[in-house]
Nucleic acid binder design. Sequence first.
DNA 1: GTCTATACCAGGATAGAC
DNA 2: GTCTATCCTGGTATAGAC
Lengths: 232, 232
Amino acid sequence: MDDDLKFETFKGFVSLSMEDMCREIYIDNRERIKIKKEGVAVKNLVKIFNAALSLSNSKGFDAMSLRDLSAEAGLSMGALYTYFSSKEELLHMIQWQSAIVMKILLDQIKGMEDPHAKLKRVIQAHLYLSEVMQQWFYFAYMETKNLAKQEHKKAIEAELFTEKILIDIMKEGREKGVFNAVDMELTGAVIKSMLQDWYLKRWKYDRRKVSVEKYAAFLVDFVEAYLVQPRP
Amino acid sequence: MDDDLKFETFKGFVSLSMEDMCREIYIDNRERIKIKKEGVAVKNLVKIFNAALSLSNSKGFDAMSLRDLSAEAGLSMGALYTYFSSKEELLHMIQWQSAIVMKILLDQIKGMEDPHAKLKRVIQAHLYLSEVMQQWFYFAYMETKNLAKQEHKKAIEAELFTEKILIDIMKEGREKGVFNAVDMELTGAVIKSMLQDWYLKRWKYDRRKVSVEKYAAFLVDFVEAYLVQPRP
DNA sequence: GTCTATACCAGGATAGAC
DNA sequence: GTCTATCCTGGTATAGAC
């Protein structure tokens, strides 16, 4: 099956480690960040974002005090403020990154023809992406409500964007006669919810020792059963 | 179809309005609450919980200050503290209620024999329940992380409890030979995630004008397709 | 039973030494 | 570039008048 994407392969060609992310954040915010040596800045940003994600994902961004953050990151309060000018700015920096990454999804299905293969690929890519960046995805989901109105709207659009990709694939499959006629909006919505479950309930899948590849294979089966079932 | 439960019917025999909930909370906490006239107490609890759910569901429980709450509920700070003795106690009072309600689910499938009917009923009942108590379910999901360790554990058990119900139905169906052999843990997990999506993404389903009955019918179809598909 | 006034502290943010 | 010391707002909580 050449439409099958392995997790290891995927990890090989995306550069999304904590350091990759922090370097990108640094470059995007060169003017605002007071530290000018890239090496120093990236090293500290890694500490800051690791600490920030870990703390806010366990107790909530709002409940995380900057003193907590300072202790966990091993930097003083003063040092923190050379990387962002307010707690809210920190929130936006984190939120922003996870949104940007979505474009990777689109790349993954470019040039594919077969709707079955395309559906499978988008499910795999979404899960693999959220596996590599679990903390970022979890944060983005849980802290949406804390965003300012405009940013909040953008987050909602990001969710609908993924659904749109799914719906387009279903439409194509319908036109080519390989999928059933179904309510595509609802189908897209529930697929999305099952994709999200993977990064929202890691405690559950970890405990049960379900790998991301297994979950992906299951999900593809599950969805295909509905899309190609023989109808009476 | 006599296994079909209408939303209106369901609403008729559950008593879960805001006033019902607050009366129950009052009775459960008679000693702690300083106000002794039931009529007065329930009236104010309605105001308090309405305000608390609305505020915390839009900005997060932690971000909601008691000054906010006081203004929204139309009661002074002093008055608030006659109903609970700390913000944390308020959190627990809210969290506790939504857990208790779960037992209604079990009642709903008692005495049913056919696995198909049972599955349908549990999906409908779960969705209807979360429809009537949307704010409570949303709160319980989003604020789990703020709970003390022990309470947090209880919340997780509640999630696994619902899955257990689903898994038991699948087992029964498997034994009776009416369902396929599937990975029941994974299937239970994704059904749960789709049930949760209904109360977590109300903005989406409202916007698309999807009724709870329509969503329920869709979900039943979707799941059945997987459980009874002809296998090669 | 309810309010106002106030105590007290934690949190975000910054100035200035090193 | 980083730290310590400090400012001050806004949060939780309570005392005591009505």
